[in-house]
Design a protein around this nucleic acid. Structure first.
Lengths: 241, 241
DNA sequence: GAATGTGAAGGCTTTCACAGCT
DNA sequence: AGCTGTGAAAGCCTTCACATTC
């Protein structure tokens, strides 16, 4: 629903400029691959080489990049630095994103100390916790503030991204307050479905869901087809209804 | 395309029993919703209610469940306990999955102490780290063993799932050793593309990728359509091609 | 000659809408 | 009367294969 002057009926929202969601999800992967190549001093790479580094196939990579523009040279490949900048710009990493983390348990501490944020345009702008005993402790050079100050922390740093690492029971309330304070994107680590107003983006990271998906496939590896072994009479074929 | 005795040519692998991958990824979400309802004493629920609790729409939920069998009652809904058991069984959570965590930094510690595993059929069977200073420390009642003992820890507990929470530089080596020791499913938190043999499943959790996807959408919110603002003359409407 | 950029084809996933069961 | 289970339609995403460009 791109806000143009006269609101034209747009059949589908995908980013504001027609880049498929599946592609967007891979851009950060390409960015990382390009950064790695750059650090190894590689100046240029073919779609095949890039794809290998990113763990996808080359047609997918080419199709993805084609949505951004024509940044390669036929017969040659892509210039690493140039493409890297273009992708960073497309994602919005040429600007600085202040992030507030709520919930300073083990996971919150891990995130606060994670160096990967800084190098990718994200800045931990505030740490918040409910427990007075934790207030004032310092993680990654940032002191923990009390939950009561959440709104202050968010607005003072103009944070638009919040990370929720509280227990499930608190997650919805925290999300409500983050949104109330002006946050419009939430990364949720609590195993809960968050309800948020339109216009607020939520992404979810759920460890035990990932493990369960792995478990499903593991089970199938061990017992490829239980029905064939257990249910069917020795030599009579039954057509499944 | 159920694998029968004579190995029929299978056009596509999706689980071993025709359940779409997209559905599998949602089963754990349904399971959690059902558990929550069960704890609230709800005995039965319609697809609409379940879908709401799980954060999806009801046709998707019904279609997903239809791949498992006919576990509902027309005109009534689904019995919570019964459906919960069926899904748990389908995922493979009626058995116990020993998990080995490699890399006891902040994130590894967070996972070791995460109570959510135990209640969902996963058991932390071993903690491993490279740093002699950390060996012997106890997290979640489990002592840390040295990386040298990785193979021993895996085989002694018959772990088939490994969690990699090492720095990127070590991740591939650790994955190789896990696979060598008998692990066939890996949950990777290191921001690296892991290369593993066929038959080994890898899932990746990447915090900064999630943040980057949020950043992309945030950027689009702030500047909904740069082209429209910059390119278009004040009051002339251009029909998007 | 080599590798990109892209229509077209093929698959997978979601949504629709209703037949069928309770 | 109400709600599930499911074909059919519609929408996405991936893969193919090649015209185009350097």
């Amino acid at each position: 629903m791109t806000a143009t002057v006269t609101d034209v009926h747009v059949p589908r929202e995908r980013g504001a400029r027609g880049i498929p969601e599946a592609t967007i999800a891979r851009l950060p992967v390409y960015l990382r691959a390009l950064t790695a190549l750059s650090e190894r001093g590689v100046a240029s790479a073919s779609s095949e080489e890039l794809a290998q580094a990113a763990g996808v196939n080359s047609s997918k990579l080419r199709k993805d990049l084609s949505h951004l523009g024509s940044y390669g040279t036929r017969g040659v490949g892509y210039e690493v630095e140039y493409l890297r900048y273009q992708i960073a710009r497309e994602i919005g990493l040429t600007q600085d994103w202040p992030v507030v983390i709520v919930g300073m348990g083990n996971l919150g501490q891990a995130l606060a100390g994670y160096g990967g944020f800084a190098t990718r345009g994200f800045r931990v702008a505030g740490l918040v916790d409910n427990d007075p005993a934790r207030v004032g402790e310092v993680y990654g050079q940032m002191p923990v503030r009390h939950l009561d100050d959440l709104e202050d922390v968010v607005s003072r740093h103009r944070a638009s991204i919040g990370v929720v690492t509280t227990p499930s029971a608190a997650a919805q309330q925290v999300a409500d307050r983050l949104v109330g304070a002006g946050v419009s994107a939430i990364l949720n680590f609590a195993p809960t479905v968050l309800t948020v107003p339109n216009g607020v983006d939520v992404r979810k990271v759920d460890l035990s869901i990932e493990l369960q998906i792995l478990a499903y496939h593991e089970q199938r590896k061990a017992h490829p087809d239980p029905l064939a072994a257990v249910v069917l009479p020795t030599d009579q074929q039954v057509r499944p209804a």
